[in-house]
Structures are given as structure tokens and as C-alpha cells.
């Protein structure tokens, strides 16, 4: 039976995990590779690395992290942050990433999604969408795409954008609510559901997880097939196994392999 996924996400800056990982005894809580090994052992279904200050100059640092992770972990890895060219994708995949996530480059140039999917296959092209609720004239609401960590509005409708990038070859959507990110108040369920129901590729719900019920809601009400969280796992509040056991109790199909 096909299972839903729990994906811990690590923000990486200059080859170091931002804020560190505190749930197990690590020699170096800031080393993304050690954190990856710990999550591999804990039964995470995938891992996500986000290079939060990716520049041309520090690209090599992230490649090294990906390479070392692939040597130590035999689990799926998605890498995002600063992916702008076909060569960026090629280098990340060769280093050991299974999927790459494209964010602002997809907003700036939709053709890039198409080129990437044709070259590497749709299955490894994730488009990361950062969306925020905006008031429309007349009192209605919609979600718009924001870039640069939620500071820059693009005026692009998130649901329409998701449909468009999927038609161009995106194989998965990593959907983050900028309103909920960091609030611990749960996913933006109407956003997640609106996007998930409008496209036929998997959606990873992201932004706002504060407890285990939130993970269940992301799948049951948001119709995502994967949930991404950071702090509830990194700071040892819940283990991956506790999260999955909770989701199983809520009736969701989860992988509990030892």
C-alpha cells in the first residue's frame, strides 16, 4: 500500500544547519550530514535541504554537504535554494540529490521548469511555492506568490501558478504558507486544499506545524500526500516515529519500517 510521507526540512547556511538540531546526541549539532544520518535512522521518509543563502560562490559548500549525505544516507533527498540553471540541477543530482526544488527561478522564468523537466524528467523537478493571503477588492481573498522570504509580492495567483508549472512539467509542489510559517498554528488548510485539488501531482504541505494533529490535517483536510516540518522535529519535541504513530492512529497509511 502506498504511504503518506513525513519530511523533515533542514535550513542550511554556509554548509551549517541554521539553529542546529537538538533531538539526539550529535557530535556537531550544526552539521547537516549528521542531522541527515539521525533522521535516516529515525525513519524519515525523505529529507529536504534548503540552502538559504545560496550564491554562486558558496555553491560548492552545498554540493559537498549533498555528496557527504549521499555517502551516509540511503534515502531520498530534495535540495532547494538558489537553483537557477540546468547546470545547477545537473550538479545537485550528480552529487546525490534525487529531486531539486526550484523557487524564484520558476517565478521569473516558467520556461526553466519546462527545460528542466524535459532534461531530467518530471519526477525530479519540485517547484516550491511561497504563498500569502491577500485581500481582493470586494472583500474576497486569494493567495499570491511572494518571493525573497515573503517580502516581495508578485501579484501572481498561487493556484493558477501551481497549475501552470505542473502543465510545464513540475512533478511535485512544495507549498509553503508564508502567513503560517513559524507560527506553529498549523498549515493553511484552505490554501493546501485549493492547490492540491487543482493539480494532479503530489503536494507537500509546509509552514506552520506546531503539533502532530497539524500533520494529520495537512493530509486529511489539505489533501497533501506529504507533510514537511522543521522545528517540531529539530528541537526534539516529537520524534518522526511519534509523528507517524499519531498519523496511523488518525487512520493515515504510514511507513513504519524499522
Amino acid at each position: 500500500m502506498f504511504k503518506m510521507r513525513v519530511i523533515p526540512c533542514l535550513d542550511v547556511k554556509d554548509g551549517r544547519v541554521v539553529k542546529g538540531i537538538n533531538f539526539v546526541d550529535l557530535r556537531d549539532a550544526g552539521d547537516p550530514v549528521e542531522a541527515a544520518v539521525a533522521y535516516d535512522a529515525a525513519g524519515a521518509d525523505e529529507l529536504c535541504f534548503l540552502d538559504i543563502n545560496a550564491t554562486h560562490e558558496n555553491r560548492g559548500t552545498m554540493m559537498d554537504v549533498v555528496r557527504r549525505t549521499a555517502e551516509a544516507c540511503f534515502m531520498p533527498l530534495t535540495v532547494g535554494g538558489g537553483v537557477r540553471t540546468i547546470d545547477d540541477i545537473k550538479a545537485l543530482l550528480r552529487a546525490g540529490a534525487d529531486k531539486v526544488s526550484i523557487n524564484s527561478a520558476a517565478v521569473a522564468n516558467r520556461e526553466f521548469v519546462k527545460q528542466a523537466a524535459e532534461k531530467f524528467g518530471e519526477q525530479c523537478i519540485v517547484v516550491a511555492i511561497d504563498a500569502k493571503r491577500v485581500k481582493r477588492g470586494g472583500g474576497g481573498e486569494r493567495w499570491e506568490i511572494f518571493t525573497h522570504g515573503g517580502r516581495n509580492s508578485t501579484g501572481i495567483d498561487a493556484v493558477e501558478f501551481a497549475q501552470e508549472v505542473v502543465s510545464l512539467g513540475a512533478g511535485e509542489i512544495l507549498l509553503t504558507s508564508m502567513d503560517r510559517d513559524g507560527t506553529r498554528s498549523g498549515f493553511d488548510i484552505p490554501l493546501t486544499q485549493a492547490v492540491a485539488d487543482s493539480i494532479n501531482v503530489p503536494v507537500i504541505a509546509s509552514g506552520g506545524v506546531g503539533n502532530l494533529d497539524h500533520l494529520v490535517e495537512g493530509i486529511k483536510s489539505g489533501h497533501a500526500t506529504a507533510v514537511l516540518a522543521a522545528s517540531i522535529f529539530h528541537f526534539g519535541e516529537f520524534t518522526i516515529r511519534e509523528a507517524k504513530d499519531h498519523m496511523v492512529r488518525a487512520g493515515l497509511p504510514m511507513r513504519l519500517d524499522p
Binding site: M1, F2, D45, Q123, G171, E172, N200, V201, P202
Partner: peptide
Amino acid sequence: ENFKIPHMGWNT
């Protein structure tokens, strides 16, 4: 149609 394509994830 609730099965998304790609088939992406863990299966028995």
C-alpha cells in the same frame, strides 16, 4: 483520480 502522478513515495 486521487492517485497523483508521479507515483512518488514509499510502497509495499
